[in-house]
Amino acid sequence: MWWTVGLEGGPRRVNHAAVTVGDRIYSFGGYCTGENYRTVRCMDVHVLDTVTYRWKVINNQNSDPKAIPFQRYGHTAVAYGPLVYIWGGRNDNKACNTLFCFDTTTHEWSLPQVTGKTPEARDGHSACIINYSMYIFAGYLEFTESYTQDVHALDLHALTWSYVRTVEDAPIYRDFHTATGIDGKMYVWGGREVASGWYQSPDQEEYGSNLYCLDTVNNRWSVIPTTGETPTGRRSHSAFVYEGQIYIFGGYNSKEGQHFNDLHRFDPSKQNWELVHPKGDGPCPRRRQSCCIVGSRMFLFGGTSPHENFEDNIEDDELDEVTLTDRRLMDHNDLHVLDLSPSLKTLCLLRVLELNIDGSCLPFELQATLKVMVTPNNITRPLTNTG
C-alpha cells in the first residue's frame, strides 16, 4: 500500500461531494474560503481523468438552468450507473431537499419527478447506495434547526421516497458522519454527536467511536462489538470501501482540537479495526476532503487544515467566530493517490522517481506516466461563449 502521487493545482474545495463513474471522478460544488455563498449561482462540476491526473470543469450550458442545483456545501452525491444523484446541502441562505440528477454521458442536469414524502432539507447527512436505493441518514435540519437520526430511502427505479421505520436504538443525533453500504447493511461511523438533538454550544459536542449497523432487510439497528485499534471519534472524515473492507481517513475532533491523517481499516467479517501504515508521502492532517476508489487506487482531494502561519493577535478579538475560523484554516487544492495494491510496474516507477533516474531510455508510455505523476495540475476550463 503506497501513496504514489501528490499534486497541487486542482479544485480548491471543502465539503464538496464526489463519486466515481468508470475511470473518472466527478466532484460537485463545495466551499472555498473567500467565495460568496449568499449569491445564488449554478453548482460547478469538476471531472478528474484518473489516467492523466488532470482536472477539467464541465460546461453546464446544455442544461435547463432551472435543473441545475445552486452552489452549495454539505450535500451528498451517489452514482447509479452513469447517473449521479445530488441531494441536500446548503448555501449561506438556505438548505435544499430537491433531488437533482447529472448524466455523465451527456453532462446534462435534470430534475427527476419523485413521489412519496421527501425528507426535510438538511446538510451534513450521509447517503449511500444499497441494492437499488439511496439511503439518507441523519444530518442537521434546516426547518427545525435541530439534528436528526432518521433514515429515508429513495428507490432509484421508481424514484419514490419512503421513511424507513427502524427498530432497536438508532445512533445518537449527528452530522458529518459517514455511512457505507456493504451486503445490504449500512455501516455508520463517527460524526458530531449531539445527544439531545438541539445544539446550543460546542460543549454539547461528543465524538463517539461506536460502529453502528442498519440491516436493511429487517431495518434493525445494532452496535457492532468491534476489536482491534478503534479510531478516535471524529467528524468530517472520509470512508471508502475496497475489497469488502471499510477504510476511514482523516477528520477532526473539536474536543481534542485535532485534525487527523491516519488510515484505519475495518473488516466486517472479523469485526476488527486495524491502523494501517501506507508507505510514501501522504496528505497532511485535514477534514472535509473527498476520497474515491478507482480500481485499486484511492483518489483524495481537497479538504481543509489548520493554517501553519496563523497567529492570534489583538485585532482578532474584534472578528466574529466565522471569520476567525476561516482565517485559521487553509483550504487545499491538492490531489493524493493511494494505491492499495500496487503493481510491480507502479513500484518500479516510484523507484525511478525516488532515485531520480534518467528515464529517457524508457518506452514512451512509461515516460508519459512518469511525467503526469509529478506535473502539477492546471484545471482546463470551457471556453466562454462571447457571441
Rank of each mutant, 00 (worst) to 15 (best):
S296Y: 09
I58F: 03
K255P: 00
E311G: 01
P202G: 05
Y252N: 01
V352C: 01
P342N: 13
Y173W: 10
L344A: 11
L329M: 11
N313E: 13
W221N: 04
M330L: 15
D339N: 12
M134G: 09
E205C: 10
E142V: 02
N62K: 15
V337Y: 06
G22M: 07
P119L: 02
R235F: 10
G282C: 10
D339R: 00
D339M: 00
N313G: 15
R174D: 11
S238I: 12
V151H: 06
R174G: 09
Y135K: 06
G74K: 01
Y140F: 15
P171L: 12
F28M: 08
Y252L: 09
H237Q: 12
H307Q: 13
G251Q: 08
W161N: 02
D23M: 04
C291G: 14
A170K: 08
A18N: 03
F299Y: 15
T115H: 03
D103R: 10
G30Q: 02
S269K: 13
I293H: 02
L111R: 10
S238M: 12
E229V: 13
K255D: 00
M134F: 04
A195P: 11
R351E: 15
Y31M: 07
P268W: 07
S27M: 13
V151G: 04
T384F: 15
G302E: 05
K279H: 13
L7T: 10
Q61T: 14
